[in-house]
């Protein structure tokens, strides 16, 4: 294999049409982080690469290093998540995760932890019943942020650093996490969270959610808004996929008071 050709394992996060029949792919690879590569002729109906360019397909890839963009020369699919395509909520949540990962992932360096974690959470989402999608989404978002070291602080007050137990507390986007109530006055932009919301936030740091907590649908829908603010503040750009969540959670419109603020 020549020096310009390389192999990687990656999951397709985004595909955009390019030129007459090409695709511009953004792939999270385990070995090289985010890779932007052109798949030539991939939009033609008889393209050999076919469905392997679809979003959330995991491929064994062969790439050719180009001057500005790499070229995808071969792909063998290793894994797909058909469950994602069966439900609008699952698919939107998966896109939310993908968009977060696109903001967070680095280029040109291994992203093994982020990659492995994304697959775990997509797999969970792909099998999630509608009323637990919000829980799975919020947990996935938190965990993906945590692996990059940018998750909000949920165990200590970000102002006084005292541990926060089962109590109501504030949340400050600027401070990057929970704020003890006695410190909240210093943080003008703080949200007030009740005991349940604080407890739920703290659960997010665990590798998996407890079965009971998966059913706290309204609580998670509220916390999604909070995490969304955190992400948008941190990366300084809107999360576009998030704005479509309401469309999917619409049958369970958020009751007044269930969301922070």
């Amino acid at each position: 294999m020549s020096g310009k050709t390389y192999r990687a394992t990656g999951i397709n996060l985004r595909r955009m049409p390019l030129g007459e029949s090409d695709l511009l792919m953004t792939i999270l690879t385990r070995e090289n982080g985010l890779v932007r590569a052109v798949a030539r002729g991939a939009r033609k109906a008889n393209a050999r690469i076919g469905g392997r360019t679809e979003q959330f397909v995991v491929n064994d890839l062969q790439l050719y290093r180009g001057r500005s963009l790499d070229q995808l020369t071969q792909a063998e699919s290793l894994r797909t998540f058909p469950g994602l395509l069966q439900d609008l909520g699952r698919l939107t949540a998966a896109q939310y995760l993908a968009e977060g990962v696109l903001q967070e992932a680095a280029e040109g360096q291994p992203q093994e932890d982020l990659y492995d974690l994304l697959l775990v959470h997509l797999e969970r989402l792909a099998a999630t019943p509608s009323h637990q999608i919000a829980a799975r989404l919020v947990h996935g978002v938190y965990q993906l942020l945590a692996v990059g070291g940018v998750a909000p602080e949920v165990h200590f007050c970000t102002v006084s650093h005292r541990p926060i137990a089962a109590e109501s507390a504030g949340f400050s986007v600027e401070a990057g996490g929970l704020v003890a109530l006695e410190c909240l006055s210093h943080e003008r932009a703080g949200f007030r969270l009740d005991i349940e919301q604080v407890a739920a936030l703290q659960l997010l740091a665990d590798a998996d959610l407890t079965p009971a907590s998966l059913d706290w649908n309204y609580l998670w829908i509220g916390l999604e808004r909070l995490l969304r603010r955190h992400i948008e503040f941190h990366f300084d750009r809107p999360l576009r996929a998030a704005t479509l969540l309401e469309m999917c959670f619409e049958p369970l419109a958020v009751p007044a008071g269930a969301s922070p603020q």
Partner: peptide
Amino acid sequence: LPVGGDLEYADEMTLAR
């Protein structure tokens, strides 16, 4: 499958569909 295409060359996603 595309008309005129070969089954053995079809990718898994297309065959599943």
